[in-house]
Design a protein around this nucleic acid. Structure first.
Ligand SMILES: [Mn+2]
Ligand SMILES: [Mn+2]
Ligand SMILES: [Mn+2]
Ligand SMILES: [Mn+2]
Lengths: 219, 219
DNA sequence: AATTATTTTTAGGTTTGCCTAACATTATTC
DNA sequence: GAATAATGTTAGGCAAACCTAAAAATAATT
């Protein structure tokens, strides 16, 4: 089945949002897609017609099995292109998303298979998110947020929650990137802020930042 | 100035068609774009509005200076992606066009600059067509068709005119590709067919095929 | 020069994807 | 549980990019 760029963006975004709560609301989706709620309702009817979403008026909705498969495939394309941009063309992690947002709609399946091989079948994109394999399987990392990580337990950064340019540039500033070893040395209950050791330096991170940084959870 | 995918396809196709005769006709352009003449007229009005074409009703049209610059840039993107697909992902020359037809519309300029560098600033695409540089300059090859090449003068294949899958697969069959050394050993005036030496073998090529094969014209 | 054929444009219509404004439904608060 | 707030849908409209059918302009033939 062929989908328009718009349909693909909707499917992918419903998929990403429903990861959290299992379902998605109209307003929520509208905000993510920078569209108006009325437009979302329009598209939901079309996607329901195509059997891609379970949707009844005024109720929260989610993807069908078919919808899920399609969405995962689009996520795969997005993250493979992000990896390409970062690894082969030298883009920074805050620059890759917008470009991949366009590249993900190029429709050739052979292209994606070959790109995957060319890149060495990478498992994670530049933000630490898993890249689904060609069958749609996703190998999730066990990870824990810095805001709940035990004190004095050095771990490698493995992902970021919020991936806005704003937070990524802040992380660049502190030298925080995927694979960097960090250790929480103090935590302040007053505001949830914490002290983080990175190499030889220690920095104070707000709770808002800390909760968006994830590290590998070594059992 | 930002252009839609459709506008970009029109600009590029007008550019390619006007290479021959300096101007383009409505029917001609419609045929190339697989659209109806009425649709072409619609788009021409829009492109004239944006000062991209010189167009008056019922007359042949062509690109303005601005239109030409834009078109060359799209051709650059197309051919760079074709080179990437062929050189890095191992696609055959008859497979790259359709995929590049989509990739060429990804809008990031930085992407193209970096792709160009990553590829080693290639001069020619997999079909032997020149890749415009970032300033829009095009280094054309001096080349001559097999149908007019002198007898017993070995030369390297440097390009193909018609680039349909049909002819490219025929050329694959004979082992004719960019860079391959060939020599016209006989020419038959009756139908313009000729005998071509490729390595140790000799093949008979029809005039229709021969006129679409170009070799470097060594003064 | 008049007729015929070809090319091109115009008029009017469709689909997709979006919007605003008004209305309906569901959730929250007093 | 009534009033208010929020969330979501419907109605009606718009722009882009197509289309078909009819009309106009240009080119080719007799
Ligand atoms: Mn996208
Ligand atoms: Mn990512
Ligand atoms: Mn294209
Ligand atoms: Mn080419």
């Amino acid at each position: 089945m062929k989908f328009s760029i718009s349909e693909e963006n909707y499917l992918k975004q419903i998929y990403l949002l429903q990861q959290d709560t299992g379902t998605v609301s109209t307003n929520n989706l509208a905000k993510e897609l920078q569209a108006k709620p009325a437009s979302v309702t329009d598209m939901l009817k079309k996607l329901r017609e195509k059997k891609m979403v379970h949707y009844e008026p005024y109720k929260a909705f989610n993807l069908t099995e078919k919808g899920n498969r399609t969405a995962v495939h689009i996520v795969r394309r997005h993250r493979l292109w992000e990896f390409f941009l970062s690894e082969k063309l030298g883009f920074e992690w805050e620059q890759v998303h917008d470009i991949a947002e366009e590249l993900e709609h190029v429709s050739s399946d052979t292209l994606i298979t070959r790109l995957d091989d060319f890149l060495g079948n990478p498992r994670f994109d530049p933000h630490g998110d898993p890249i689904p394999d060609s069958s749609g399987k996703i190998y999730r990392q066990r990870q824990v947020s810095l805001s709940t990580l035990a004190l004095n337990s050095p771990q490698s950064v493995s992902g970021v929650g919020d991936q806005s340019t704003a937070i990524l540039e802040l992380l660049n500033h502190y030298g925080i990137a995927i694979g960097v070893k960090v250790e929480v040395t103090r935590r302040f209950d007053f505001d949830g802020s914490l002290e983080l050791q990175i190499g030889k330096k220690r920095h104070l991170l707000s709770h808002a930042v800390a909760k968006n940084i994830f590290v590998q959870y070594a059992q």
